[in-house]
């Protein structure tokens, strides 16, 4: 059975907003973000609370851009990288609306857009909020080393983005449409190097992109942009090469949020950005603004996630990947 879902009544993105930290604001996409905080604390006393605050701000801003009050939300689909997804919990409690907590690692933003769009399209909710975040400090503490620990990162390692992105998805006649979605499946090719997430996630991206073109019968050049979430330099070139080998050339339109968000040379970000906040802030910043300016009309957004936990890593398990696809049209 095919995985591609064409949405009969394509829902629209009524509002969107992005919130980022210092290094993201210093990067090449600086001008596209709505809010940033140099201290990365957003007025809070812990990094975890700061992450929730970013989500709350992003969703609030997206609502106000859509000229909607929080009461209008039928449900929130939210996720982050913290244990048990608590970052999203504390953000969502401000909105007093049904809440679905999602975990798809860095693929969560596409997952939350997809579920929001499906529920709206099916008519169960009129308006949904899709919001995800990641915070470098919260993620670093949980997955890697303390902030002041003296360690070196491998050249293939990626940096967790401090950022959040939110979309308000509903009906109406204006705004970018979500016309197709393709849920990803878990793909595990045995990579267990935590410093090379790009390689761990690339097979999932290859799987979803290939399946999409097989099922839809389209060709890559029909799109303005094929955008993966956070494969970074490693995953980006692996995906490109493998797809080429398999007879699918996407080089002309292919880009990756993890490569876009930082200037890897001047900012010393190794393989690029990662985290649920990476593609969320890039899509809700740069990409949506390009749609508004009319320079983008039809894109495929494929968010990729590395589905591991600190325990699974220590037990030596491999890192499975997942890639969810969403098609956005002007």
């Amino acid at each position: 059975m095919g995985r591609l879902i064409k949405l009969e009544n394509p829902p629209r993105i009524n509002g969107y907003a992005s919130v980022v930290g210092k290094r993201e604001h210093e990067g090449p996409l600086s001008a596209d973000f709505d809010v940033h905080d140099k201290s990365e604390k957003f007025g809070m006393d812990t990094w975890e609370k700061a992450e929730s605050e970013m989500q709350r701000m992003a969703l609030n801003l997206a609502l106000s851009k859509a000229k909607l009050s929080p009461d209008a939300l039928g449900a929130i689909f939210a996720g982050d990288l913290q244990n048990q997804c608590v970052g999203s919990v504390y953000a969502s409690e401000n909105f007093h609306t049904p809440y679905f907590g999602l975990y798809g690692a860095c693929s969560t933003f596409a997952e939350s857009i997809m579920l929001s769009a499906l529920f709206v399209s099916a008519g169960y909710f009129d308006i949904c909020g899709a919001v995800t975040s990641s915070h470098f400090c919260a993620a670093e503490r949980q997955y890697r080393f303390p902030l002041e620990y003296g360690g070196q990162r491998a050249p293939t390692a990626q940096r967790t983005v401090t950022g959040a992105g939110a979309m308000v998805i509903g009906g109406g006649n204006t705004g970018v449409k979500i016309t197709e979605v393709m849920p990803g499946r878990v793909v595990d090719k045995g990579i267990n190097d935590v410093n090379n997430m790009g390689a761990a996630m690339a097979p999932a991206a290859i799987d979803t992109i290939e399946s999409y073109f097989n099922e839809s019968g389209k060709s890559p050049t029909e799109f303005d942009l094929i955008l993966t979430g956070d494969l970074g330099a490693e995953g980006h070139s692996i995906t490109l090469e493998y797809l080429q080998k398999r007879g699918l050339d996407i080089a002309a339109v292919y880009s990756d949020c993890g490569l876009m968000i930082f200037n890897r040379k001047t900012q010393d970000m190794h393989s690029g950005g990662s985290g649920c906040g990476c593609s969320a802030s890039v899509v809700c910043g740069n990409i949506m603004k390009r749609f508004e300016k009319g320079t983008l009309h039809d894109i495929l957004y494929i968010a990729t996630g590395a589905l591991m936990s600190p325990s699974s890593l220590q037990q030596g398990l491999s890192i499975p990947g997942i890639a969810h696809l969403v098609r956005l049209e002007a």
Binding site: P155, T156, A199, E234, I238, S271
Partner: peptide
């Protein structure tokens, strides 16, 4: 392939 592809320190 990934091992060969990976940029080394």
């Amino acid at each position: 392939y990934c091992k060969k592809h990976a940029k080394h320190s």
